[in-house]
Write a protein that binds this DNA or RNA. Structure first.
Length: 478
DNA sequence: ATGTGC
């Protein structure tokens, strides 16, 4: 494989073999050296072979191996000639991150963090197969969740109207087709709305540890020492079911439309085909379910905090900074070689990033740019950035989404045999509660890259601008 | 990621 260093934040894999476009990897020397497994770069090249791909197959600095497409991948396809692929979105459709600010200071929360986390752990169902005992969606309600997303939750009293303006696409993407959702997916999802799930999903209570750009941080409500809450989850078993059924559904389509694939996991269908439309319609349902899920969790969090601190909602001031998807395919318009073009942008482990002034950035922060949320690992820190003009000109308005794994789950389990991660984290000032027995070992901090390295690259590449660094004090894991 | 696996 040929790969060239283009500049201080970019590597290029020139067209070779069946590649229709080059591969572009955003990384500097240090990060590139950390990619010891070439398999994810091969996946990057495989994506470049798909019909209708525009400009390049791209990967963010947090790239690692995924199903078919690499995680950290961005690929845009022409609406006429292009395809849509479930592997380009991932199993957890609209997995994403929401960040909340509060009116609380670190000093008043830290001494009581254990009790607070225990209260929140009881309020938010967590872990593999987590569900609600009583709350259950009828089929009619499930349809409404799929078609309306976060606004369904708000209309039922879960949260405030004002939350919606601070969610990507106002918490609802278009094109939802409930007829494309199976009975089995409904059955699996009906009691899972407002649950966390497992693996790398979390609710994290932390504080603003470092302000990097004060004007923008002030405008986002990120003041030094201010308590914040991060929520990372997606569409649970519902999205998983939609994805796995769609892969089955699209298998024959690949051959039917004469698409040759370098890897079976890249199963796809033309965007114009009935099969492609069906996937997009079902995917939108799962994406909207995930927006509603994060909205419900926000509500449970507010309720739990109000009871715990014995303060009113107004006094606590829990506000949504932003909610961004990082596993999704969306129809967007972008400028390609000087011309506006409608594209299907796949972001798999990549967030949207829009620069200051863009009409889709919420009015309250339009002059600073769309908040880009990049969580790190449980022990170190996370970053809040805002989109920069380079994202629109280079990556179809996309940026990195996290630290990226350096150890797979099994490797992490081996590396931590006999260790008590909760005790290690507690000594570092982070109180953790987890539902699963092995989750903390799978997710221990050193299983991930240092997210500061990822942030350095996206800043150098002009994709986003760091605004603040957040540190955790209490974490709920699944 | 996932009621984890043909």
């Amino acid at each position: 494989m040929k790969i060239e260093r283009t500049d201080d934040s970019t590597y290029t894999i020139p067209r070779q073999g069946k590649m229709r476009v080059p591969g572009v990897l955003f990384a500097d020397g240090r990060l590139y050296a950390g990619i010891d497994d070439g398999a994810c770069l091969e996946q990057l090249m495989n994506v470049a072979c798909l019909p209708g791909i525009v400009e390049a197959s791209m990967a963010m600095p947090d790239i690692h191996w995924g199903y078919g497409f690499p995680i950290g991948g961005v690929a845009a396809f022409d609406m006429e000639e292009g395809i849509v692929s479930p592997g380009g979105v991932g199993y957890d459709i609209n997995c994403g991150v929401r960040l909340l600010t509060t009116g609380l200071e670190k000093d008043e929360v830290q001494p009581r963090i254990r009790e607070l986390i225990d209260v929140l752990f009881a309020a938010i169902p967590s872990g593999l197969g987590s569900h609600h005992r009583e709350f259950r969606l009828s089929e009619k309600e499930m349809r409404a969740v799929c078609e309306r997303g976060a606004s369904w939750a708000v209309s039922k009293g879960y949260g405030d109207r004002g939350d919606l303006a601070h969610i990507e696409d106002l918490g609802c993407i278009g094109g939802a087709d409930f007829e494309a959702v199976s009975q089995r997916a409904y059955e699996r999802g009906k009691d899972q709305l407002g649950t966390l799930g497992s693996g790398n999903h979390f609710v994290e209570v932390g504080y603003v540890d470092q302000v990097i750009r004060k004007t923008q941080a002030d405008q986002l409500g990120l003041y030094p020492g201010r308590v914040v809450v991060g929520i990372h989850t997606g569409s649970r078993g519902f999205g998983y079911q939609v994805c796995s059924e769609s892969i089955e559904d699209l298998m024959p389509a690949t051959r039917k439309y004469g698409i040759s694939l370098p890897d079976k996991q890249l199963v796809c269908a033309p965007l114009k085909s009935p099969e492609g439309r069906r996937y997009l319609g079902a995917m939108a349902c799962a994406a909207n379910f995930a927006f509603a899920n994060r909205q419900m969790i926000t509500h449970f969090l507010r309720e739990g905090m109000e009871a715990f601190f014995r303060r009113s909602a107004g006094e606590l001031g829990v506000r949504v900074v932003y909610d961004v998807a990082h596993n999704i395919a969306k129809i967007e318009e972008h400028e390609v070689q000087g011309r506006r073009q409608k594209l299907c942008v796949h972001r798999k482990g990549a967030t949207r990033a829009l620069p200051p002034g863009h009409p889709l950035v919420p009015e309250s922060c339009r002059n600073v740019g769309q908040p880009v949320l990049i969580p790190g690992d449980m022990g170190r820190y996370s970053y809040v950035l805002v989109g920069a003009p380079g994202a629109l000109s280079r990556t179809f308005g996309s940026c990195a989404h996290g630290a990226g794994r350096v150890l797979g789950r099994n490797q992490a389990l081996k590396a931590t045999q006999g260790r008590r991660i909760e005790d290690e984290l507690s000594r570092q000032g982070v109180y953790v509660r987890a539902a699963g027995r092995t989750t903390l070992r799978e997710e221990f901090p050193q299983a991930y890259k240092d997210v500061a390295d990822v942030v350095r690259v996206v800043e150098k590449a002009g994709l986003a601008l760091p605004i603040a660094r957040l540190k955790p004090i209490g974490v709920i894991k699944g």
